[in-house]
Write a protein that binds this DNA or RNA. Structure first.
Lengths: 337, 337
DNA sequence: CTTGGTGATTTAGACGATTCAATTGGGCGC
DNA sequence: GCGCCCAATTGAATCGTCTAAATCACCAAG
């Protein structure tokens, strides 16, 4: 009843386990007649290879871990898609883990992945300087940072977040806005910090432009709506006329709050999001957004990892950086004054 | 350099491997002094358990597979969330797999999961009568169908899709619509077929109501927009005045196409979606939708699986069915004539 | 009829953790 | 001082697969 092992297959086919293993791994060295007999036995018994045993024997597994901040965010879904596509070509399996921007969950997933002796890990870490991460790398698990730039000693693929911030900032300033809000996830997260730094730079260079910062813990639609309500409640004199949000989910929630509060977008409030997820275009007011090449990001990360895994020693860590694009849609398409 | 094994830990601590294993699994039977020594050795060496070896020895793994039709769909994300929460309590890991409504990908994932000897599989199958699935079950992997009702011989958790269809249909009929469109993913998928059957029932009972059916292959925003353009291009006399879409992603795309075509929602076209994802509320016109308790669905599925895994023989397969709710929002809030 | 060679198959260890029966050592009672 | 018992520890077998080395069978050449 229990799943048969190679041993039963061998017995039924009247050969040794070695031969069965050969049929599985080097069929060409087995005589055709024997091969057929073994294959018949395999299908008769419904034999399925035991990955754990293979892994133990081989000393390395065939799975790669991918730890993302939020699977519900289409940006990461696309990213996962790219990673998985390449993994498939390498006969490798991707284990998708959702840290939900929670260091505890993240740590738990890392522990599990290390215990599984994964080939390597692609991760958008909560904190790229996390000592746990460093320890993991020191113990020998290849890690590629995703959507985050590694300083050294690690591969990474990322998008120039400062540029993204500058693109959004310039656009809003050129549209005539003088009071701009930046709204984003924990400022301790590098992406968020960089996007903020980007817009700060251009705001600093412009005259009479004021940047207000709002911090949120979680970057979902709900939180965006909450901040939106808060901003809408400000007196019109001091209320920002434009908002740049660190991701589209936030922006969508924010947009919705504007509608509820009776503020017109983009006339009363211009909005620029980040990631350019599919929904951005489908929003009440189509959302301007800074687009990141998510799928490409995932693919490249996997590429770097495979390279590191295969090339072993002669591998040099690299930091790949992509450029974001600003996609202007109706939500910010309004020249003030 | 390579990850140390229990053997090195034992050697360094001056004990046998058995003792190290005891520290790991039954610390209380080890003398405190020894235990401490072993623990020091573990952290000095950076020892990490090898899950493959544990699994091989134990004969069963600690991971559960979850195969969904589309990770990008928030419905499945929420579902995964529920499943994962419960898995965590059982010291179990969830392996999230995305079949993308593609039988080939689905098959590939099932193969991988079976090779990994997962504890069990939660799956929203493309086709619940797939012989591959049956074979898998026969070979001994516990399977729980999710968002789909098993006939017998399997556990399942699902939502009454026919009821969902009836709810939507009744609402639209009562609102005075006489030409209604049903738009959905492959009709071969049971969920879709059931939702359609549901609305068909009530349409059949009403007088002078006409139902038009539109089939799509993939259920994303893009496809919804495409169908929307097609429908909008119909002559006003024969064009439906209301559309019921088999999921919210489709509905959002459809909604967008209406806006582009200059059709007012809900006046010219009422829309009802399915799943009630967060975005539904945040849409251009807040979307009416049939809500499914996604997280609860995932949790319950995992519950059934754990029950089957633990209770072994005295387990009786059960089919749990939840009730959907119709959430009426602006997109269908208009009485015709 | 023996020797050599070739191609096919078998044998025998790993791999790392777990478990259980077997052993050791110390303390205590008599 | 002897024996006994219990707690602590050890040693060996096991899980399923893979691989390198060893063996086997068979045939051709000498």
């Amino acid at each position: 009843m229990a799943t048969p092992s190679i041993k039963e297959v061998a017995h039924r086919a009247g050969v040794s386990v070695g031969t069965v293993s050969n049929v599985l791994n080097r069929p060409w060295i087995v005589a055709p007649a024997t091969r057929q007999r073994v294959q018949d036995s395999i299908s008769a018994l419904g034999f399925v290879r035991n990955e754990a045993a293979r892994h133990l024997r081989a000393g390395k597994s065939r799975t790669v871990g991918l730890v993302v901040l939020d699977v519900a965010n289409p940006f990461f879904t696309d990213l996962a898609e790219g990673a998985e596509a390449l993994a498939y070509e390498h006969d490798t399996v991707v284990m998708l883990c959702n840290s939900k921007t929670d260091p505890v969950r993240e740590g738990h997933h890392l522990d599990q992945l290390e215990q599984q002796r994964v080939l390597g890990i692609l991760i958008t870490p909560f904190d790229s300087n996390d000592p746990r991460l460093t320890a993991l790398v020191d113990r020998g698990t290849p890690v590629v940072l995703v959507d985050r730039t590694a300083d050294r000693g690690l591969c990474s693929v990322s998008v120039d977040d400062q540029l993204g911030g500058r693109l959004a900032g310039n656009h809003l300033i050129e549209s005539g806005h003088r009071r701009i809000a930046f709204i984003g996830g924990p400022f301790s997260m590098q992406q968020v910090a960089d996007r903020m730094a980007g817009i700060k730079t251009v705001v600093g260079q412009a005259d009479h432009v004021d940047l207000q910062e709002f911090e949120v813990d979680v970057t979902g639609v709900v939180e965006g709506r909450a901040i939106g309500e808060k901003v809408a409640a400000m007196p019109a004199k001091s209320r920002p006329t434009a908002a740049f949000l660190a991701n589209d989910l936030l922006a969508l929630g924010f947009l919705q709050a504007m509608a509820v509060a009776g503020l017109r977008v983009p006339r009363d409030m211009a909005i620029v999001g980040y990631d350019d997820i599919d929904f951005a275009r489908a929003a009440a007011v189509p959302l301007s957004s800074v687009r990141q090449p998510a799928e490409l990001l995932g693919r490249s990360a996997m590429e770097l990892l495979q390279e590191e895994v295969e090339a072993a020693e002669r591998h040099r860590h690299r930091q790949v950086i992509f450029q974001p694009d600003l996609i202007v849609r109706e939500s910010s398409d309004f020249k003030r004054r």
